[in-house]
Each structure stands twice: as structure tokens, then as C-alpha cells.
Simulated assay, not measured.
Amino acid sequence: MKTKKGTIGFVALAFAGGALFTGWASAEDAPPAQEAPFGSVAALEDAGTEDAGGGGDAEAAPAAPPKQTLTISADKSPRPKDADWDVLGVEMSFSPGSTPNGCRLQHIREWVRVRCTGAMVHISMLGGNHEGVSIKLDPVGADEFIPFPQGGEVVFPVRTGDRRVFEWIGVEFGYKGMTSASSFLILSESWLPWDEGPTIYAR
């Protein structure tokens, strides 16, 4: 009786050991799991899981462009005289991202002058507050082959809440001389109530 029970136990143990060995061998021989195709939903889900657990630092948001700093009088000051700009005018930079096409930006107190040189046809204000705005083209020179002003400027006060847009129309040169007019410069000025200074952008 003992021999029969011992035989049965040995057979059961051997069967269990064989099943365990077979499972281990199957796991070793199984082909590696294939990655989800690039761009598939599964791949996107995997990428999202990895990013979530990666702990990488998020990119910092770009810094806001600096605003212009003007010395603003407590009361509205009178417009500077034409001769004052050459003596008292302080050179400024246009706001970041501008391409001023050689134009200059100056200010005296809250007053700003933008002056451009080159063959001009017209300067116009496209919209905004007209208070205190002055637009001027240079006189036409004596050269009969250059029948257009060779420069022009706009002068205006810059105060909180202002919004203005100007356009310079220049002259394009062709093989027969000055043949057509085109936009030379677009100037925008704004000072929103929550900003510390104005944005003066030229392009």
C-alpha cells in the first residue's frame, strides 16, 4: 500500500515539474512583443504615459516683449517745435520684432516722432486717435529726375489708452525710373491701460 501511494505521489510531482518546465521554455522561445506602429493610437497613448511619468521640466513661456519707457508729464505738454527734435529728441528703439526700414524713432516727453527717408508719395493715418497728430512730407527737391519728397514724418503724443496706425507710401524703381507706388512702412502705436508703457511697432 505504501509503495502504491509513493508511486502516485512521484508521478504527480513529475507531472507538475514538467508543466512548469514547459511553461518556462514557452516564455523563453516566444517572439518579443512588437511595438505599436508609429503614429497609431496605441503609440500615442504609450508616449503620453511616458511623458506623464518622465518628470521632465516643462518649457518656460516666452517672456513678454519690453514696453517703451517714456517720461510722461503730469499735464499734457505742448507739441515740440520742429527745431527741438534735433536738440532735445531722445533716440528710442522700436518694439521687438520691428523692421523699421531705416526709420528713426525719437521722443520728447510724451511726444514721439517717427521719421523716414526715401522717395515718398503719401503718409496717411489709417485709424486711431487723431488728437495732436501731425503728418508732414519733405519739400520736393530741385532735381527734375526725382519729382517726389525724399522723406516724411509723423509726430503724435503717446498717452495711456491710445491706439494709432500709420502707413508710408513709397516709390518703387523700375527700368524706366520711378514707376509705381508701394507700401514703405506700417507703424502702429498702442498703450493699453494695463501696460506699463506703449508698444511702437514698425514693419
Rank of each mutant, 00 (worst) to 15 (best):
G6F: 00
T7V: 09
I8H: 00
F10E: 15
V11H: 02
A12R: 14
L13F: 04
L13H: 01
L13K: 14
A14I: 12
F15T: 15
A16L: 14
G17L: 07
A19M: 06
L20A: 14
F21K: 11
F21D: 13
T22R: 14
T22A: 15
G23K: 11
W24G: 15
A25F: 01
S26I: 10
A27H: 10
A27E: 04
E28F: 07
D29N: 15
P32N: 13
A33W: 09
A33C: 06
Q34P: 00
Q34K: 15
A36W: 04
A36V: 12
P37Y: 11
P37M: 13
G39M: 10
G39A: 06
G39R: 02
G39K: 06
S40Q: 10
A43E: 13
L44V: 08
G48H: 05
T49V: 09
T49L: 09
E50K: 12
A52R: 10
A52W: 04
A52Q: 08
G53H: 11
G54T: 12
G56R: 03
D57H: 03
D57L: 11
A58S: 07
A58D: 09
E59M: 04
P62F: 03
A63D: 07
A63I: 15
A64K: 05
P66G: 05
K67H: 11
Q68H: 08
T71P: 00
I72E: 05
A74Q: 12
K76M: 10
K76V: 05
K76R: 13
S77E: 02
S77T: 06
K81Q: 09
D84R: 03
D84M: 11
W85E: 05
W85G: 08
W85V: 15
D86N: 12
V87F: 04
V87Y: 00
L88T: 08
V90R: 12
E91S: 11
M92W: 03
M92E: 06
S93T: 11
F94G: 04
P96V: 03
P96L: 04
T99L: 01
T99D: 08
P100H: 03
P100G: 06
N101P: 00
G102Y: 01
C103M: 09
C103G: 05
R104F: 05
Q106I: 01
Q106C: 03
I108M: 06
R109I: 14
R109C: 05
E110Q: 15
V112I: 13
R113P: 02
V114G: 02
V114N: 08
R115N: 08
R115I: 07
R115Y: 02
T117S: 05
T117D: 06
M120E: 06
M120C: 08
V121K: 14
V121M: 09
